[in-house]
């Protein structure tokens, strides 16, 4: 699939909606997705913080940020168990990002539907 290097971890940071009553746990649809918009400037603020922590910001979407970095950085920054499969571990949003980030999730490869 064109993977760059083996120890690179990819993650998605989901921004917290500006309206605290909106729940990202519900189905998200085209007609309501705008209600989940993050506060103005939140994308840049979180991206800047991620870069400051040493992560790369590889893509910004409408309400999420794709970030990446070496496995060791993820383990150290999120205090993960290096012996366990990283992709099964939950990342706790650090205090520095908590106000504006709803969650951070490690990404895995999809399945191609030929099989």
């Amino acid at each position: 699939m064109g993977r760059a290097i083996d120890d690179r971890i990819e993650a998605e940071v989901i921004l917290r909606p500006s309206d605290p009553s909106k729940n990202l746990g519900q189905p998200i649809r085209a007609e309501t997705v705008e209600q989940l918009a993050a506060p103005k400037g939140a994308m840049k603020r979180i991206s800047d913080k991620l870069r400051k922590f040493g992560f790369a910001v590889v893509a910004e979407g409408s309400a999420s940020i794709a970030t990446a970095g070496p496995k060791a950085l993820f383990e150290k920054f999120f205090k993960l168990d290096s012996d366990a499969d990283l992709k099964t571990q939950t990342l706790d949003v650090p205090d520095d990002l908590k106000d504006e980030a709803e969650g951070i999730y490690i990404q895995d490869r999809p399945t191609y539907f030929r099989h």
């Binding site: 998605e12 940071v13 989901i14 998200i28 997705v33 979407g61 309400a63 999730y105």
Partner: peptide, 19 residues
């Protein structure tokens, strides 16, 4: 029963793309 957390960003972006 629900979309897992690691796919929530994709769900957001899919809905936003159609919007």
């Amino acid at each position: 029963a629900t979309v897992p957390g690691n796919l929530k960003a994709l769900e957001l972006e899919v809905a936003h793309a159609v919007a």
